[in-house]
Design a protein around this nucleic acid. Structure first.
Lengths: 162, 162
DNA sequence: AGTATCACTTGCAGTATGCAAGTGATCGTT
DNA sequence: AACGATCACTTGCATACTGCAAGTGATACT
């Protein structure tokens, strides 16, 4: 990890610095997909329900890699493929994502079942250490579903085991 | 200028919904200023170290108000002034800001003293309830300083205890 | 050899951002 | 009441970023 000859920063405030790296509509969504959905390849992201454009995806992956949040590595068995994976710096964003998830689920109409969210809120530490465990052991089974629907009607959506 | 059909969401995922409201370089910075710095007026924000442009500031305040995160109210004693204040939905963003703060302080060179951050990390719940107390009681004394400096010397990376 | 797949690029129109300057309502002072 | 200062924004404009469609080159498959 080399140093960063980055652009001049607005201020030394950590929140501001975070937002300069992650403050856009897509970056944290990519981190989410890597963290909880088990996405690894460029193609995987294109299948995500938010339909990110390929040029934006390529740009964000490049920036996230430059920021040391994501690591890219060509697959040995198929050299067309590039495997993306979170770095430790990347997996350390788990609390941010979890809080954004809980916040929106509480205040907006989301596709997430209320019971699931309350469970995650209650077991915050367990959820975070499970996310970290999956990252460490390269366990790609999704931690959360895709929340396709805009509203939720008491349906169960996996993850009962935790 | 007609309003646009902004009801259209990319997906039902709570993280995506959060990012559609807050996913830019400025919105969470404004929330931070309201939450920990005691800012209330338009002028206050212009004095912030990140130097937000006035048109962007006006636009973001409008959007945050439309999203129910900020409440705007003209002051009775001086009707030129508008007082901005977080709603409960807004103060509920405290965990997100705290996590972004901790994350950047751990992984980037920030203007925040390491000891302060480690303390906040350790006393997470206390910090959050103090932020909420200040909000509830309209206590405007800043919870955090401005972190003007760009660099901080002699810091440890802070994961030693884990 | 020919086709499919993968990870991107490129072109371009539309949108957002950043900067400087300006506007109107209100206040404090004369 | 007149005057200038203050406050919260607007406006104009050049530049940067985004989103969509289409294209490209390097593998891999048959």
């Amino acid at each position: 990890m080399p140093a960063k000859p980055k652009l001049e920063r607005r201020s030394g405030c950590p929140v501001s610095i975070s937002l300069e790296m992650l403050g856009d509509r897509w970056s944290l969504l990519i981190v989410r997909d890597l963290m909880v959905r088990g996405y690894r390849t460029f193609k995987d992201f294109q299948g995500s329900s938010e339909k990110i454009a390929t040029n934006i995806l390529a740009d964000r992956l490049k920036k996230l890699e430059a920021a040391g949040i994501v690591h890219a590595e060509p697959e040995t068995t198929d050299r067309r493929r590039v495997n993306y994976r979170l770095t430790e710096k990347g997996i350390d964003l788990a609390p941010v994502l979890l809080d954004l998830l809980i916040w929106a689920a509480r205040h907006e109409e989301t596709g997430a079942p209320c019971a699931l969210i309350m469970d995650m809120e209650k077991n915050r530490e367990a959820v975070l250490s499970e996310a970290r465990r999956r990252w460490r052991e390269r366990d790609l089974t999704p931690l959360l579903p895709e929340f396709k629907g805009k509203k939720e009607t008491g349906r169960k959506t996996g993850r009962e085991k935790l």
